[in-house]
Design a protein around this nucleic acid. Sequence first.
DNA 1: TTCTAAACGAGACGGTACGTCGGGTCTTAGA
DNA 2: TCTAAGACCCGACGTACCGTCTCGTTTAGAA
Lengths: 206, 206, 206, 206
Amino acid sequence: MPPKSSSPRPADVTRRNEASRRAILTAAFDLAGEIGFDKLTIEAIAARAGVGKQTIYRWWPSKGAVLLDALLALSEPDNAAEAPEAGLPDTGDLEADLKLVLRATVAELADPRFDRPLRGLTSAIMHDTDLAATYAERLQSPVDALKRRRLESARAAGQLAPEVDLDIAIALIWSPLMDRWLLRSGPLTPEFADRVVETALRGLRP
Amino acid sequence: MPPKSSSPRPADVTRRNEASRRAILTAAFDLAGEIGFDKLTIEAIAARAGVGKQTIYRWWPSKGAVLLDALLALSEPDNAAEAPEAGLPDTGDLEADLKLVLRATVAELADPRFDRPLRGLTSAIMHDTDLAATYAERLQSPVDALKRRRLESARAAGQLAPEVDLDIAIALIWSPLMDRWLLRSGPLTPEFADRVVETALRGLRP
Amino acid sequence: MPPKSSSPRPADVTRRNEASRRAILTAAFDLAGEIGFDKLTIEAIAARAGVGKQTIYRWWPSKGAVLLDALLALSEPDNAAEAPEAGLPDTGDLEADLKLVLRATVAELADPRFDRPLRGLTSAIMHDTDLAATYAERLQSPVDALKRRRLESARAAGQLAPEVDLDIAIALIWSPLMDRWLLRSGPLTPEFADRVVETALRGLRP
Amino acid sequence: MPPKSSSPRPADVTRRNEASRRAILTAAFDLAGEIGFDKLTIEAIAARAGVGKQTIYRWWPSKGAVLLDALLALSEPDNAAEAPEAGLPDTGDLEADLKLVLRATVAELADPRFDRPLRGLTSAIMHDTDLAATYAERLQSPVDALKRRRLESARAAGQLAPEVDLDIAIALIWSPLMDRWLLRSGPLTPEFADRVVETALRGLRP
DNA sequence: TTCTAAACGAGACGGTACGTCGGGTCTTAGA
DNA sequence: TCTAAGACCCGACGTACCGTCTCGTTTAGAA
């Protein structure tokens, strides 16, 4: 990600040290997983990456931006394939497919290696609208597109009522999970995911 | 709220200076509304409240705990009445009542005086399980009880399917709002609230 | 020692709790010996003595004053006898007597139990003229009187030149020891004490 | 002066900011003269010098060390000349020369601009053996060398008894002054200095 | 012997400074 | 020119004590 925007130094991207960039992203992700985002410091990232602090400040506007890039980088290196994000499963059975996806999400969020960086990034997004915009563009909107595509497929198959707003449908299905995860307002179990899918779909079917 | 637990000094609650306590809570809430929770500092709260820092550290384990108490205190002083929390409206028309409540929530969350402290507190809760526990006990569970009571009333009136899990129902209705608010993943409008209520209720009715 | 002066409350000496007073002085002296005067705190004295802080502030103006009293109290309890201060030895041989006294002083100053409190008190006196005045009156002047008496006896015996100013003589004999002790500008040995006495007396004899 | 020793970070002396160093020393000396050493705080020095606290903690282990450096720096900048320390006066008349020097010392110690920092530094030295060692090496021993040189010159001129230990002689001449100054055990006047010189020399002459 | 005012143990309070941490900027050397 | 290293100014941290100020609770002299 380029620096804030236009302001201080454009910074010549072509001269950028790729090894340092990867070391920083790896260090940031690992440290966020180990000690949590809020205890994460730029100094610690720089030290772990064997990099000067300035090299971080030159290329990223905040530690949230570093972490966002770090998460994005998790998919990139496998480059072309992009298998993990190639699409939501579509067996023709919407309920089963959604349960599968949500159960996978539940499992991922239960792993501290992912919970902590994601939680931290989410918290950063809550407070930093610039970062939120980048997040929306780079992570959320592609993922939402996948969800929407699956629901469109279901609608085409007559499994969803035509008049249902897909944005609302997505919110109904995924928000309860996010809420439980972020606020720990209840146990985040596969069963909960199943119940949410079942109940939401009651209202989404024709 | 007494300090974490047993460890250093129990601190004698009977000797507590009530004026200082209120000054701290007021200062914390106001400052959080003015500059945001993450830029809020204990020193600033102490200075604004005309209080020594130690007086804050003596009674609260973190600035999140201060802010939680500050929010709780907003209802208390109105004492017995407790009108605002007396219950959700129950006109017999569940959909209308829910829309009313959700629209009010949307309005409140749009006001920076509430958005900022609440957002900060929510962020703190995400990272601090002790605080989350206190939050769950003092704020979330009473509010959830009100929601649940309204839904039970609706179920008794035959407006909800008997087999619906009320916790899931609550999640379906309120989570989409929280998600949009926290992550700014879309505009948080009264219309959105209406759509969510309508769609969720499709699946909750008998 | 009574409080500062007239100002707030005269404090009724007759009601004073003797047990607390002794506990404070003992605690102050012991703590000064253990951790040194500058790390000594009123709170620690109060805690060790099992006494409220106010009881110290009520009766002493500063921790230096407490420590001075503590040192004075070391001689008092042996009551009337006052043997240790009854007078400097007077065998008729001035040089031998002085060497004896100075060697004893050297030994005392080498003992951390005395070095630390005395060093701290001396430091306090250096910065606090009120305390210095009390010190001069209660400790220094009686001791100086003893020294002067011994030198007068020597002068009467024809061992000192009549024209010598006794204050100067006292300074010449004792100051080098104090200097070495306070500033650690050289080893504080019995031999040093002997040399000083010998050299000083060369100039003091008729 | 580099930090205590090896422990945390050696701190790269070549990168040190000379302007900050001088500002700190000047601020420390001035403040010590204005408010006294014991009321001197690191924070005040940093504020007056327009410097971060850490810049002081990085390079000095204690405020005593700062003040010692500040005093040493008073002579340095005049660099080569070093006139003030070029040597004690040597007119051939030892008694007159010593009186001159001691009277000058008395005058200096009477000036609060010097009394306060020196008194504070002396007090710090009394309690801090590390600092005392630095002091002995950097300030005391060069000064003592000057004194010793003058006395050797006098001995060569037959004005001192050959058998007199010069360390003892130095102590006899200068200690009484230091004592009166530090403990205010009597008026520190030029007359006192004269008397001390006269009496001490009685015993030091052949 | 009771009453009452003080001294007392305890410790909360408004403050000041501590020594440390990390932020973000700036400078120096080396590749 | 970018980088690793790290010194710098700054602000906040959480802690330790300061000296003052209540709180009940002894306690000792006067009534």
